[in-house]
Structures are given as C-alpha cells and as structure tokens.
C-alpha cells in the first residue's frame, strides 16, 4: 500500500486548518495570577538630601535628584495593576501627598508629582528619621501598602546616647524597604537662603554634633572639664562631623531591623526594583492569557504544508518518476 493518495492529504490538511481556526475563534484563555504591588513611596526631602553625591544617568546629581529619578523609573516598571502613593518626610513626620493609585492608568500625574518633589516643600529643617519612618509605617499600615522609604539616614539633630526612640508600629506589621541614598564618603551639605539661592555649605559650627537630650553617654566622665551637675557632657564643645554627610548605612540597617523592613543601598534602578520586589507584599491579580495563537499556529502550519510542502513533495516525486535515469558519470 502506498501512502494515502495526495488528494486526501490535502483535504485533511484543509480540514485540520479549519478545525484549528474554529478552536481559535472560540477564544480560549487561561487564567494566570500576576504579581502587583501596593507601594507607599516616601522621600526624605531634608537638607542633607541636597548633598551632591548621587548619580543620574552617570552624571553627578543631588541625592534628591537620584531618588526622584530612581522612583520615576521604578513606577514606570511596576506591573500594571500595581498602585503607588507618594509622601514626603522631613522634621519628624511623613506627610501623605496622595493615596496609592493604579500606576499604569495614572502614570502621568504620578510621574509629574514625583518630578515636582523639592527640598523647598520641607516645613522644617530637622531630620528625625526614626520618627519619620515610624509615622510612614503608620500611614502605610492604614493604607494597606508596603513602604518604600528613601533616605540618607542622616539624623539631625543627632540621636541621643540612648539611641532612637521606640517604635509605635509593631515590627513586621508592614512590609517594605528602607533605601539608602547617597555616597559612602562624607561630603558637605549645600545651604540655601530663604529665597532658595545657594549660599555655600553648612559649616561645622552651624549644627549640633551631639545630642544633649537624655542621660549623657557612659564615657562622658572622662571628658575634660566634666562635672556631674554643671557639665555632665564635659566642658569642651564636642567636635564632630555632623556638617558632613554620607549615607548612614549602619543606622538604616538598625532601623530596618527594628521595624522588620528590608534595607538596600540605592545603586541603580535594577537593584532597587529587585529589592522592592523582594520585600514588598505581593497582591496577586488574576489575568487572562490569550491562548488563541496556539491553535492558530497549528492552522498556519497546516496551510503552509498544504501550499508549500505538499506541492514540493509532489514535484519531487513526479520528477523522479518522469526524469530519465542518468548513468553515473565517471
């Protein structure tokens, strides 16, 4: 018996293509669950964020510029269905600008709002980061979002010897990440006048270098001029480097550990995105995947076989049948 007559093969290919196309027209879909994230983005806008040791596109920029650029790209990369809200931190509070909204449909206003973040929005010069993280955690918990808090970790004034204040929020109740912004080498902090013009840098005598709140540190009794009542911190003003700033990673790691948040240094958007995906709570959203291409590809193959392969096969067979047998040439 020879292989089925060619007419039948062609008919079957057409029937197969027809059936596959009918299957495609039925519109098969598969339900898959995709991750989406609800984020509350809080940006530190205190003075030390103006220090110019960040990078944007390989160029030096202020930390605030670096944070803004990273967040704008991060929001653009979030999977559709994710939501992002925005807040700013200064003094001792995080201040909510808008609640989380869907990022794909509302990308333009979110992007515009992040681009408009500016140190001049700050209502006070203090930078009590531990308190700011605490209030940001409360906001995030109320909104049901994960926290992404971008800061350089520079506490101003410095923390008392007893360490940061206790957190109200329960550790681990809110997921999220602290993101350290800035370089690891101390740099000066630009200073501005009340009209926003830059007037040099913060000098050593402009800032306190040690907190005089609470009990003095244990080693204070060894300082020159120490007196338990009149000079419990010693008589000589503490020399310090609080007028210079670098990203205080150990402090941020400590805060992250106390609050159950993650910690990452802002090195690039890819790393930030990966860190956020690692730490933020995932809200699975159901999505339908179009399966029509599967039967449709089968139909295409059948038709191509019908119009390409079968005629070729036939021609070869016919030429074999009709061609005179050549004697092999020596």
């Amino acid at each position: 018996m020879t292989a089925g007559p060619p007419r039948d093969l062609r008919l079957w290919l057409l029937v197969a293509a027809m059936l596959a196309l009918l299957a495609a027209l039925a519109g098969p879909t598969a339900a898959v669950s995709r991750p989406a994230y609800d984020l509350l983005l809080v940006v530190d806008i205190t003075g030390s964020m103006n220090a110019r040791d960040g990078t944007v596109n390989g160029r030096p920029a202020s930390r605030l510029d670096a944070a803004r650029a990273a967040l704008r790209t991060l929001v653009a990369r979030l999977p559709c269905g994710s939501r992002a809200g925005l807040g700013v931190f200064t003094e001792r509070r995080s201040f909510l600008l808008f609640e989380p909204v869907e990022t794909c449909a509302n990308f333009a206003p979110i992007d515009g709002a992040i681009a408009a973040l500016h140190w001049r929005m700050a209502w006070e010069g203090d930078s009590r980061i531990a308190s700011g993280v605490d209030s940001a955690l409360a906001l995030a918990q109320e909104l049901g979002a994960s926290l992404v808090f971008l800061t350089d970790g520079h506490e101003a004034p410095p923390l008392p010897a007893s360490g940061p204040p206790a957190f109200d929020a329960e550790a681990g109740a809110v997921s999220g990440i602290l993101v350290g912004v800035g370089g690891t080498v101390p740099v000066p902090i630009p200073r501005f006048d009340d009209r926003g013009r830059e007037i040099g840098f913060v000098r050593a005598e402009d800032v306190p270098h040690e907190s005089r709140v609470g009990p003095p540190p244990a080693d204070a009794s060894g300082r020159p001029g120490w007196h338990p009542r009149n000079a419990p911190w010693g008589a000589v003003p503490e020399a310090g480097t609080e007028h210079l700033t670098e990203v205080r990673e150990s402090h941020l790691r400590d805060l992250a550990q106390r609050t159950g948040l993650g910690y990452a240094l802002l090195t690039g958007v890819d790393a930030l995105e990966a860190a956020v995906r690692d730490t933020a709570a995932v809200r699975p959203i159901a999505a339908a995947v179009d399966l029509r291409p599967v039967p449709a590809a089968g139909a295409l193959l059948a038709l191509l076989a019908l119009y390409g392969v079968v005629p070729l096969m036939e021609r070869r067979r016919r030429s074999r049948r009709h061609a005179p047998r050549r004697s092999p040439t020596a």
Binding site: F98, A105, N106, P109, A113
Partner: peptide, 20 residues
C-alpha cells in the same frame, strides 16, 4: 501649610485626583 507643596500637576486623571 508651613511650606507650599505641589501635590499633583494639572491632570484629567480623576482617579489620581481623588487619591490626592
């Protein structure tokens, strides 16, 4: 309040406006 703060640029995305 103590300082002026831009919250949302002029937009027709009312979902974002409601969030603000």
């Amino acid at each position: 309040s103590t300082a002026p703060m831009p919250v949302l640029p002029v937009t027709d995305h009312h979902e974002a406006l409601r969030a603000a």
